[in-house]
Design a binder for these strands. Structure first.
Length: 570
RNA sequence: CGGGGCGUAGCGCAGUCUGGUAGCGCGCAUGGUUCGGGACCAUGAGGUCGGAGGUUCGAAUCCUCUCGCCCCGACCA
């Protein structure tokens, strides 16, 4: 491709509305343009990247035995009505009506539609296992689209659905998809972790997220430094200390006056005398359904609200208002504590280990010192704190490492959630009817374009992994002489004949402009053709992620460059 | 939906407080000089100041309403 004939509208200054690295660089590099909030155009370069990702996804899905189909994006109301999601999806569902006043929506996901297809067409155990997928635009009216392609209202998604006769077979399908996803993310050239995650409202029994590591990621995850345990912090566990505090030698409980000292830091500073936040018993009041409960974690730890909700068996918990705190403890906020507290108390195992703790006295301007679980207060011991860097792995006790990630894929076993509700049943060998057992598997294809950039960029621009780069090689003839241009033209044709995708910068621009654009758009290999090298019969080869040039002989250059490309793709 | 910010030329911004002929840089066009990390000179094109209403002799500027975009939070099979 001749750069002069391509459509690559790069810009020097970042549009002010873009803040995340991928958003800035994809805009500046001429890959995307915004049409509305969370709605983007894929320009030729962006589309090349997205299509490459899509091709890898399709290859691996096909290899795993899945079959591609295409469902409509515009859907009549009745399907989501049937599953209850016409209401439960709320305003995230983009609704529209036709000329006759009929209700429609744009598909945010397709469990209902595929389940309808399968209930009409699949009647026998002989027709399973079955795995159907599509790559299609999805529509979700996100409350807050953001960060360019990372969270859009219209986005390209690969969604696959498996259908099996029972849980065991469904698990097998799930494992096959997990393997396929491993191959996909590996081939994309992205560093990632598979983490266990909250199954959310899907009610699935088993699920895993494929998290692409990026310091700018929205999700916090932990991964073991030695075994393969990894989890979203929403659900991450850690090896908990056993037993209760050995409080035998601790002095008897005592009330101390702590005027104005409400926060952990203030109390530690006020009491002094070697007190650390790890000896504080942080007591937080939460509203869970009808009741107000107290959650106690060590003062140097954070509470994980999802885990607390799960421990309490409620969908979610809300931090109590100041008024609720006063009512429940009889004291101003900042002085709550488990000793003598009337309601339900959940104690984190680490907090239960504190032998000589300090906590609020449920009395304004007062705390209690020399407090221990088991001796001074009771409660249900449940792991409710946030797990983080350095905590021991729940499986092997090695230290966990904290990462940030972007969710690139998510796989679920759905069970019979949709099939039972929608009557997707089959007959087994004995003529008995059963609901099919489903799984669903998503990959955010357009999101991965941005995710790859978040993980692979520097101050000068993008550094595409070879497998998804818009072109493999950038040819940069420089100087005003004819020779570099002629050599570059010839090299372009030779490389193309070898199956290498080449972008030839034939623009009449100064070298600096060409180099800056080359770095910005991030083609993995750049070949500079200039008088400097040609006088020695050489070309300059520079990898986008390397610091220095290397000189290669002009003789046989095409083969050498093609070999480098093949090597990077292997 | 709560909080904050921003809409002025294709992009980035100044001008708004204190009303008085709409400016700068980049980009674009033409000519010339340049040519190994975003060159220089000259000339030029390009704007209903997001929109509507109001106040005023006069509104980018003041008032009211409205639309859009960004960030934080809530939310996010």
């Amino acid at each position: 491709m001749r750069y002069s004939r391509a459509f690559i509208p790069t810009v020097k200054e970042a549009p002010k509305d873009a803040t995340s690295p991928s958003h800035v660089l994809l805009l500046r590099g001429g890959f995307i343009r915004m049409v509305g909030a969370g709605i983007y155009e894929m320009l030729p370069m962006g589309l090349r990247v997205m299509n490459k990702i899509g091709a890898i996804v399709r290859e691996e899905m096909d290899r795993a035995g899945a079959h591609e189909l295409l469902m409509p994006a515009m859907l009549p109301r009745e399907y989501f009505e049937e599953s209850g999601r016409w209401d439960s999806f709320g305003s995230t569902l983009l609704r529209l009506s036709d000329r006759k006043g009929g209700d429609y929506h744009l598909g945010p996901t397709h469990e209902e539609i595929i389940t309808d297809l399968v209930r009409r067409e699949v009647k026998s155990y002989r027709q399973m296992p079955l795995n159907l997928y599509q790559v299609q635009m999805k529509y979700r009216d996100e409350p807050r689209p953001r960060a360019g392609l990372l969270r859009c209202r219209e986005f390209l998604m690969k969604d696959a659905y498996s259908f099996d006769v029972d849980e065991a077979a469904a698990t097998q399908s799930y494992e096959q998809m997990r393997d396929a996803y491993h191959r996909i993310f590996t081939r994309l050239g992205l560093e990632y972790r598979v983490v266990s995650a909250d199954s959310g409202a899907m009610g699935g029994s088993t699920s895993a997220e494929f998290q692409v590591l990026a310091s700018t990621g929205e999700d916090a995850i932990v991964a073991c430094s030695s075994c393969d345990y990894a989890a979203n912090v929403e659900v991450a566990e850690t090896k908990e200390p056993e037993g209760a505090a050995s409080s035998a030698e601790a002095p008897a409980r005592e009330r101390v006056s702590t005027p104005g000292a409400k926060t952990i830091d203030e109390v530690v500073a006020f009491l002094g005398d070697g007190l650390t936040s790890a000896r504080m018993l942080k007591s937080l009041l939460y509203v869970a359904g009808e009741e107000v409960v107290m959650a106690v974690v060590r003062g140097d730890r954070e509470l994980n609200e999802i885990k607390l909700a799960r421990a309490l068996g409620v969908p979610e918990v809300f931090l109590a208002s100041d008024a609720d705190v006063r009512k429940a403890t009889g004291a101003e906020p900042g002085f709550a504590g488990p000793v003598g507290f009337g309601g339900r108390v959940i104690v984190d195992p680490e907090a239960a280990q504190v032998a000589d703790g300090v906590t609020g006295a449920n009395e304004t301007d007062a705390h209690l010192v020399h407090v221990a679980y088991g001796r001074d207060f009771e409660g249900e011991v449940r792991a409710i704190r946030a797990v983080g860097e350095g905590d021991p792995c729940p499986r092997c006790a090695s230290p966990l490492r904290a990462y940030r990630g972007i969710e690139g894929g998510h796989i679920f076993i759905l069970g019979t959630h949709y099939s039972a509700k929608m009557g997707a049943t089959f007959l087994d060998e004995d003529g008995q009817s059963h609901p099919v057992v489903m799984g669903c598997y998503g990959i955010g294809v357009s999101r991965l374009v941005a995710t790859a950039v978040e993980q692979n960029h520097d101050d000068n621009g993008i550094r595409w992994p070879m497998a998804i780069a818009p072109y493999h090689v950038m040819l940069t003839p420089i100087g005003k002489d004819d020779e570099p241009r002629e050599v570059a033209e010839r090299l372009h044709d030779e490389l193309a004949a070898l199956g290498v995708e080449v972008l030839l910068d034939d623009r009449n621009e100064r070298p600096g402009v060409k180099f800056k654009d080359a770095d910005l758009i991030g083609i993995p290999l750049r070949v500079t053709v200039g008088k400097r090298g040609l006088t020695n019969g050489e070309l300059e080869l520079k990898a986008r992620d390397a610091d220095d040039n290397e000189m290669i002989p002009l003789e046989g250059a095409a083969e050498a460059i093609a070999a480098r490309v093949r090597e990077a793709l292997a």
